Simulated assay, not measured.
Amino acid sequence: MRNLERRYRTLLKVLPKWYRRDREEEMVGIFLAERNDDLDLEHSWPGWGETFAVLGLAVRTHLAAGAALTGVPGKVVWRGEVVRALGMIGLLLGLFYGVAAIVNLAVAYGNPAFAPGITWWWLLELGPIVAFAALLSGRRTLAKIAAAAPVVLALGSLGQPQYMLLWGVFQLPSIVTFVCLCLGFHREAPTPPVRRLVWWGGGAMVLGLLGGFATGAGLLAVGLITVIVRVVAFVRGDVVLGRAVSLFAVLQLVPLVFLVVAGSEILVPAAGLALLLVLTAVAPVRRPSAQGFRV
């Protein structure tokens, strides 16, 4: 085996075994076609274009939707559905934060005590609203770009140490959401169920209004709804939604613990809800009769 072929086979190891078993020889043959020079075969490396193409294929196969791939193991389909469900749940939380930010800006507008703290960075809080609408309309690239706005907000806080911890804590779910959207909603992934998610999006925006006027109350409501949805997923035997909500519960624990440590006026409810979220995260999920993001 020549060095170039060995390097191509090493690159292909990022693909799942079930895919390589049927396609590896064919792919290596295509890569090595018309590369007959001995010097090239000994000292060359896979090109950047080929490398990125294989990495993109690795994402699509490890998080397969089953639409354009054959022989996909059930656990691979399940894994992709969980990632996509977690991304959508994170966007719903982003709607909550976005609407709450709008309410905060409206309350602060014209108030000299708060006006100096209003900057253009606050506009990045609206990114999830744009991402949610774009994803439901099929514009996945725009959705991913918009979902990156809170991530930029968290990075921007590095230049403002007084906000770094606060923003970092509350933007952690947004960072995870952005990663899930990039990985899960590839070009072969299914379109999210628009009608159901519109209703859930409306509920998240209503909670955002509550969160904008009553600091901490909206966050508690989101945590309580997380627990309720997890119970519903268990009763219905929806393992995809159950696993996604379990992971989401872990993300919700971070800001709640922050409120508890900071000695918030909602200390007791926050501590109680944090305990419920811990139970939500570790509770078992009944195996479903049919998988899917059913909300």
Rank of each mutant, 00 (worst) to 15 (best):
V261N: 09
R6S: 14
I89G: 05
Y19S: 04
S174K: 13
G98P: 09
A221F: 07
A67Q: 15
R20D: 05
R6D: 15
V231F: 07
G237S: 13
Q162V: 09
V250G: 05
L259G: 01
V261S: 12
L63V: 12
L251M: 00
I102R: 12
L15A: 07
L279P: 13
G94Y: 04
V206C: 13
H186T: 06
P73H: 10
G242D: 15
L172G: 05
Q171S: 10
R286Q: 07
W120A: 14
T51S: 13
L256W: 09
G208L: 03
L55D: 06
I266K: 06
R6I: 14
L142G: 07
P193T: 08
R286D: 10
G47V: 13
A53R: 12
G98C: 01
W121H: 00
P193W: 04
G66Q: 08
V206F: 01
F52D: 08
L57E: 08
F31N: 08
A233F: 08
R243G: 11
L155D: 03
G156C: 04
L220Q: 11
A271N: 04
V83I: 09
M27Y: 12
P288K: 11
M205Q: 14
V295G: 15
W167F: 14
G87E: 12
A217W: 14
M164H: 07
S289Q: 13
L273M: 08
A115E: 09
E5R: 09
V83T: 14
L4K: 08
A64G: 10
R35I: 14
T177Y: 01
W199F: 15
V72H: 11
